[in-house]
């Protein structure tokens, strides 16, 4: 009996909770170390970015208005879904896959717990010198562009995305360029989790091509990026100046280091602090 020919998969994009092909029709082959074809992935275009931003914009208000408690539960549920896909995620990562998947899942759990705690420690009442009730509360910053490092492909994505969605933001994610498959396996977990479609949108393709479009899109108000070259970093910041995007770029980061990758500092860039005054004397 001849050896069975495997089904090579073409991973599509993940936009608005659905898996469309790139409108450009372009795909790229992904091969393993021995040059064997593993799969094809979409090579996303500017139009795909626009579609993804539109999907994120549609999801933004509903996700922002979801209670912090429920957002926490939904993120925890995502960790559960990832746990069920551990083997598939690990084999997609290839090297040290098991360890990276475990860390990524634990990081999702870490940020799931922040949803209803960050506002408590970051907001507060301000003792103004007058008869006013004055308080500061964090609100979601809005649609955020996430540019992932090539390595670690899954843990990098989770570390950059989890704080963004924990604070009630929808995002458009450019996955690792060198190994986009774990991101697309994750998309399948996302699609079956309770996270509303459009909150996380994932594109595969080339950073140099896509970064300028993401940076210049006026529907995006914040950027969270890691693993950039100096030129990509400048491109992102230049484009972002057009509509005053809040840009956070992680450099020289050890994604395995919990102390460096967790905590309230990771959430601060993805909220806007709103200060509210009301007279408290008649």
């Amino acid at each position: 009996m001849s050896e069975r020919l495997s089904i090579t998969k073409t991973y599509k994009l993940y936009i608005g909770g659905k898996f469309p092909r790139t409108e450009s029709g372009r795909t790229t082959a992904v091969t393993d170390a021995s040059n064997t074809l593993i799969a094809h992935v979409c090579h996303a275009s500017r139009k795909d970015i626009r579609d993804a931003v539109e999907a994120a914009q549609k999801a933004q208000e509903g996700w922002a208005n979801t209670t912090a408690y429920l957002r926490g539960q939904i993120l925890y549920r995502l960790a559960e879904m990832m746990e069920g896909k551990r083997a598939e995620l690990a084999s997609a990562i290839v090297e040290c896959g098991e360890d990276e998947v475990a860390r990524a899942i634990d990081r999702v759990v870490h940020f799931a717990g922040w949803t209803d705690k960050f506002p408590m420690i970051a907001g507060g009442a301000n003792p103004v010198a007058g008869p006013y009730h004055n308080f500061t509360v964090p609100f979601p910053v809005g649609v955020t562009g996430v540019v992932c490092p090539d390595e670690p492909s899954l843990l990098g994505l989770i570390t950059l995305v989890a704080p963004v969605i924990a604070m009630g933001n929808a995002c458009v994610v450019l996955a690792s360029e060198t190994n986009p498959i774990p991101a697309m396996v994750l998309a399948e977990a996302l699609a079956t989790s309770d996270l509303p479609g459009g909150v996380v949108n994932i594109l595969t393709g080339f950073r140099d091509e896509l970064c300028p479009h993401l940076a210049e899109h006026r529907g995006v108000i914040a950027i969270h990026a890691g693993g950039l070259t100096d030129a990509q970093r400048t491109t992102l910041r230049l484009g972002s100046a057009n509509n005053m995007k809040r840009v956070t770029i992680r450099e020289h980061l050890d994604y395995k280091n919990d102390d460096a990758c967790e905590g309230p500092r990771w959430l601060e860039p993805f909220v806007e602090f709103k200060t509210i005054w009301h007279p408290s004397a008649v």
């Binding site: 301000n126 103004v128 200060t275």
Partner: peptide
């Protein structure tokens, strides 16, 4: 119910 109030403790 107020406007243009400022205070050093208020971001």
């Amino acid at each position: 119910n107020t406007y243009n109030k400022f205070d050093p403790t208020s971001p």
